[in-house]
Simulated assay, not measured.
Amino acid sequence: MEERVIFLINKFEAGQMVDAEKTELLNFIENHPDTVSGEILNLLSAHDLVHVGDEEMDIDQNRWNLVFNKIVAVDQFKHPKKTSISVYFRWAAAAVLILAFASIFIYKIREKQHVFTADIAPGGNKAILTLANGKKISLSDVADGDLIKEAGLSISKTASGHLVYNVVNGDLSASENETNTITTPNGGEWQIHLPDGSDVWLNAASSLEYPLNIGNATTRNVKLKGEAYFEVAKDSAHPFVVETEKQKLEVLGTHFNINSYTDERATRTTLLEGSVRVSSLTNTSEYEVLKPGEQSVLSAQGIKINTVDTDESVAWKKGYFMFNNEKQESILRKISRWYNIKVEYADEEAKDVMYYGTVSRFDKISQVLHKFEQTGEVRFEMQGNKLIVYKD
C-alpha cells in the first residue's frame, strides 16, 4: 500500500490525479493516519509540514488538509560525492491548485533554474490494445467502462488507467492461439489485470502479448518487449512464463521486474518476492534461480546474479526515477523514453558523468534537467523534442 500512496502523491502533485484516485488517497489517509504519519514519512529522507490557517472550511477542504498535515512529498537529488543539490517541498503548491480557498504556508528550498525556451510535460496513461482480430483500440482516447466482450471475456478500462479482464459467466471460449497485445509508446504507461488474476504494470516504449485463455492454460505464457513489473497470481499447477528477446523466466506466483529494452546492453530481472527461474534463450542449459533482493543480468557474457536495492528497479512504477551512481547516458535513455525526446551529445564525455538521487517522473523535463545542471558538470539545450547535452 505504501507504493500506491507514494504513486498517488506524485500524481496529485503533478496535477494528474483523477477523481477516483483523489477519493482513494483521501480515504486511505482518513482510515490509516498512524500508517501515513509513521511508515510513509519514514520512507522519505527529509520532510516538512504544511500548516493551514483557515478554520472555516467545508468538509472536502478539511479532508485535504488532513492529507497535507500527514504526508509531504520531497524530491532530493544529490551528486555522487554527496553534495546536496536541492530539496523540494511542493505539496502545498499542488494544494493551491485544488484548494482555491485554503490558506497554506509553504516552505521550499529552490535555486534559480535554467530557463528552457521549450518545455515538455511528463508521460502518462497511453497505450494501444490490439485485439485477437487485429482491431486496435487507443486506450487513452476511449471512455471509461466496458470496452468489448471477446471470447467469453469482458474487457474494461478504469478511470485510473487500468485495463481489466473478467470471465463472463464462467464461459471462457478463447483458444490458445487468440491473443491480445497492449503497447505503450514513448511517454506512455499502463496497468493490466490479466484473465488469470495477475497484474502487470507496463513502462514506456513496451509491449505485452498474452493469450486470452491464460486463465485456463496449462502454462501461462506471455511475451514482453521493454519493461514491466509483474505480480503473478499464485497457481502451482499452472506455471507463469515470461519470454523476452533473450531470456525465459518461469514462476508459480511472485513479484518481479524485467527490463528488456533492446537499446540496453543487458536484460535485468529483479525479484521482490517468491522465486523465479531465469534462463538464456541462446544457451538453454544456462539458468539461475533468484531469491528476493537479487537481480539477474543477462548479457553476452552469460547470466550474473547481484544483490541489489529493489527500490531502484521498481522506482518507475512508484512514479519516480532513482539513480545509484549511474552514468548519465543510461539515465537519459530512461528520460528519453518517458518524455518522448531524442538525445544528442555535443560532448561525448558527458555520457560518463555519474549521479545518484531520486527525481519525480511527474515533473516537467526542465525541472528534471535542472537537477543535473546543478552539479556544475553538464548543461542542456532543448530544441523542439531534441535534447543537446554539453559537458561543462
Rank of each mutant, 00 (worst) to 15 (best):
Val168Trp: 05
Val87Thr: 15
Ala132Tyr: 05
Val289Glu: 10
Leu252Gln: 14
Val241Gln: 04
Ala217Glu: 05
Ser285Lys: 10
Arg110Trp: 01
Ile106Val: 14
Arg379Pro: 01
Asn213Ser: 14
Thr270Phe: 05
Ser336Glu: 05
Gly302Lys: 12
Arg333His: 08
Ile388Pro: 14
Ala14Leu: 06
Lys317Trp: 04
Ala14Trp: 04
Phe28Arg: 03
Leu25Phe: 02
His32Val: 07
Asn42Lys: 15
Ser260Met: 10
Ala73Asp: 13
Asp146Met: 07
Phe116Trp: 11
Thr375Gln: 11
Gly53Met: 12
Ala228Pro: 12
Leu25His: 02
Glu348Gly: 03
Glu348Cys: 00
Lys351Met: 08
Gly53Gln: 11
Asp58Phe: 09
Ser154Pro: 01
Tyr261Asp: 00
Thr375Asn: 12
Asn283Trp: 01
Thr130Val: 09
Ile106Glu: 15
Ala174Met: 06
Asp34Ser: 14
Ala95Ser: 12
Trp338Pro: 00
Glu13Leu: 10
Thr179Gln: 11
Phe323Val: 11
Lys364Gln: 14
Asp141Ile: 06
Gly145Val: 14
Glu13Cys: 13
Glu178Tyr: 08
Ser84Phe: 03
Glu348Pro: 07
Val378Ser: 08
Leu97Ser: 13
Lys22Cys: 03
Asp54Lys: 04
Ser206Lys: 06
Thr269Lys: 10
Gly170Tyr: 12
Asp60Lys: 09
Gly123Ile: 02
Asp235Glu: 12
Pro211Phe: 08
Ile331Gly: 00
Glu349Asn: 08
Thr375Cys: 11
Asp144Phe: 15
Ser285Thr: 15
Ser140Pro: 03
Gly357Asp: 09
Val18Tyr: 06
Val343His: 07
Val167Ala: 15
Asn259Ser: 14
His193Arg: 13
Gln374Ile: 09
Val378Gln: 08
Gln113Gly: 04
His370Ile: 06
Leu99Gln: 14
Asn62Trp: 09
Ile155Tyr: 12
Lys234Pro: 05
Thr218Cys: 01
Ala233Pro: 07
Ala118Pro: 02
Trp316Asn: 05
Lys82His: 03
Asp48Leu: 00
Glu373Asp: 09
Glu312Lys: 03
Lys70Cys: 09
Val5Arg: 10
Leu272Asn: 15
Ala217Thr: 08
Val232Asp: 03
Ile29Ala: 11
Leu131Val: 09
Thr282Leu: 13
Gly123Asn: 06
Ser260Lys: 09
Thr244Ser: 02
Glu344Val: 13
Gln374Asp: 13
Gly187Thr: 02
Gln191Ser: 12
Ala46Met: 08
Val142Ala: 07
Ile303Pro: 11
Ile85His: 04
Thr35Gln: 07
Ala127His: 11
Lys334His: 03
Val297Glu: 05
Tyr339Gly: 07
Glu21Trp: 02
Ala95Asn: 09
Phe89Met: 04
Ile98Lys: 14
Leu202Ser: 03
Lys11Tyr: 04
Glu209Gly: 02
Leu224Phe: 08
His114Gly: 00
Asn31Ser: 15
Ser299Pro: 02
Pro185Thr: 12
Asn340His: 01
Glu243Trp: 01
Gly376Ser: 11
Thr244Leu: 00
Ile104Pro: 10
Ile192Arg: 02
Ser279Asp: 01
Phe101Thr: 14
Asn177Pro: 02
Leu194Pro: 07
Phe77Asn: 15
